[in-house]
Simulated assay, not measured.
Amino acid sequence: MARFHALRVTEVEPLTDDSVALTFAVPPELREAYRHAAGQHLALRRRVDGEEVRRTYSICSPAPEPGGSGPRALRVGVRLVEGGAFSTYALKEIAVGDEVEVMTPAGRFTLEPAPGLYAAVVGGSGITPVLSIAATLLARERTARFCLVRGDRTAASTMFLEEVADLKDRYPDRFQLVTALSREEQQAGLPSGRLDRERLTALLPALLPVGAVAGWFLCGPYGLVTGAEQALRELGVPRERVHQEIFHVADAPAPPRPAAPAHSTLTARLDGRSGTWPVRDGESLLDTVLRVRPDAPYACKGGVCGTCRAFLVSGEVRMDRNFALEPEETEAGYVLACQSRPVTEGVEVDFDR
């Protein structure tokens, strides 16, 4: 089960005018709990006006070596969201020495290092998990190669410029970087413009042998990720080679809500204990569980992070949105509790599977 622990902030590093990198020290007794795979994220928690606020931020530091001790420190990137309850706090208030409640790592937007060619298309803060993925892969697999295609508004708004440049210097023959700026011309490289489906369909085959890429990692705003996925589909890339994580789903279309049964009950197993409760009108399965089990796992409540994944034991539900589960997971019976609403009068889920 995911757990929160208070971790001390050891560094607050400005990256751009609207983003910072936060580093947390991990004490020896918690290092195994915070062992993470490249690409995973952390949920950070605070209370604002008496209400709990959680936000997820991807780990940008490389994953610890297998078999060794867990990480001594964790580093995440935070970009300011207008009116954001946590990002505003992170950029304007958090200081070295502060303690922040941090959940143990979660997420399945990951890569287990293996030989081969890998590629990523990212936009904005979508670089954060991919930075960890690329750095971990290139350090552990001496024959692996990685191609990073990133889009940003301007050079000044580009997060982790130095870290990406360091990868290019360290692995000049195995790390390929292509940058597109949407609001600024570059002296060299691609002309300005967004990385949309049409542009990526033409660009990607010119950069690398698309069919030889063992894994594609798409991360960023909804429009960029869906456009990149459509481009890869047009280029004949098998679905199982494409992995995606969406940041900022505000521009995603809102799905219609299904008609709910007049009375429905939810049975849920969590941390070895089961309970049955009525589902209130309009509630998600997660909200039903949280009324009596505040330890239920969740982070974003937006269908993005996958922290609330549960196995559907019986009954039928419909998910409003799903930006976290792979098709193989939904076919196996997993749902996102924060997005699932009952269709049948009885539903049973298991958070422990």
Rank of each mutant, 00 (worst) to 15 (best):
P255S: 12
P172F: 13
F217A: 03
G151W: 01
Q244K: 14
D251V: 08
Y222F: 15
A254D: 13
A252F: 12
T201D: 02
G223E: 14
R197W: 04
S192R: 15
E141R: 14
W216E: 07
D152K: 05
H243Y: 14
H248C: 06
A165Y: 10
P172G: 07
P256Q: 00
S132A: 15
V210M: 04
R150N: 05
V121M: 02
R197M: 07
A155L: 14
V164T: 14
M159K: 08
T201E: 15
P191M: 09
Y118I: 14
A114M: 11
K168P: 01
G236H: 04
T158W: 03
D152L: 09
V130D: 04
A120I: 11
A188D: 10
P255V: 05
P258F: 08
P253Q: 02
A144T: 06
L161K: 13
L195F: 06
V149T: 02
R153Y: 01
P172C: 12
R199D: 03
V122G: 07
V122H: 07
L203P: 08
D173W: 07
Q176S: 15
R174G: 08
A228K: 07
V242S: 00
P172R: 11
E163R: 13
A155Y: 01
S182Q: 05
G227E: 06
T154A: 04
E234A: 13
S132Y: 10
L195T: 08
G126A: 11
L131G: 02
A206K: 15
E245H: 04
P209F: 13
A144G: 10
V178C: 12
L203N: 00
G211Y: 07
Q230K: 13
R153P: 04
T179F: 00
L232V: 10
E162G: 00
P209Q: 08
V130S: 11
A139W: 05
R239W: 01
A119R: 11
E163C: 11
D166V: 03
F146M: 00
A139C: 01
